[in-house]
């Protein structure tokens, strides 16, 4: 963790106020308040189409439809680690090359051992030389999630449906890892339909404003 982040440790990692999102003339949510502090986890819930992905993409700067004030705690590098729906895995690069690229993008330079360890954590150690196009959807997802096992990551993880396409063991392993991340003082914002049981989290449910707001 950087020194500047340590100085204002009491500030929340993320404070978002009065969020409004309108899409195709439909009000997804309004007056939404989110606060995320160190060591805590926040789950975004809601039915399909209630704006979970829109909200999370908006928070990391990938959606300009989201309006409101969004304050991330100032850090030296990018304050968040975002995992979205799309796997971010190039079909023509091997698993190891993909993972190294994802790390280098964030200014990390893990050695071969750290990369292999991360792949082993998601059960992909046997696939390190396979090109991305030979992997199944679940395996591509695991490569992206292997990033979460690298050392030196940002403290706040923003994970959009991290459990999709994973098998039962994979889900459980990831839950334990996320729990450990929060226990170490990291924070977590995630969306899922499934309710993790291994660690504690608060839940914000989207879709409750729809009936009163829509015209």
């Amino acid at each position: 963790m950087s020194s500047s982040a340590r100085q204002n440790h009491n500030d929340p990692v993320l404070r978002a106020r009065d969020l409004i999102c309108e899409r195709d003339d439909r009000l997804l949510f309004r007056d939404l308040q989110l606060t995320l502090t160190d060591g805590s986890a926040l789950r975004i819930a809601g039915r399909n189409g209630t704006g979970k992905t829109t909200l999370m993409r908006g928070l990391v700067g990938l959606n300009i439809l989201l309006e409101g004030s969004i304050d991330w705690r100032q850090t030296d590098a990018s304050p968040w680690l975002y995992v979205g729906h799309r796997p971010g895995i190039s079909a023509h690069l091997t698993v190891l090359e993909n993972l190294r690229f994802l790390a280098r993008l964030r200014g990390l330079d893990p050695d071969q051992a750290a990369l292999r360890q991360a792949l082993a954590a998601v059960d992909l150690q046997a696939f390190d030389d396979s090109p991305g196009q030979q992997l199944s959807a679940g395996q591509q997802r695991r490569v992206l999630l292997a990033m979460l096992y690298l050392p030196g990551l940002p403290d706040c993880w923003v994970l959009d449906e991290p459990f999709t396409a994973l098998d039962k063991q994979g889900v459980l392993a990831l839950e334990h890892h996320l729990g450990a991340h929060c226990a170490k003082g990291g924070s977590l914002l995630f969306s899922t339909h499934h309710e993790p049981t291994v660690f504690d989290y608060a839940t914000v449910t989207l879709g409750e404003h729809m009936t009163e707001g829509a015209t």
């Binding site: 990938l62 990018s78 979205g84 799309r86 971010g88 895995i89 190039s90 993008l105 964030r106 991305g132």
Partner: peptide, 17 residues
Amino acid sequence: RYDHQDGSLEQVATSGT
């Protein structure tokens, strides 16, 4: 095209690079 389809661009855009 490829980087947009497979989400690599999203990863770059949110990575700080």
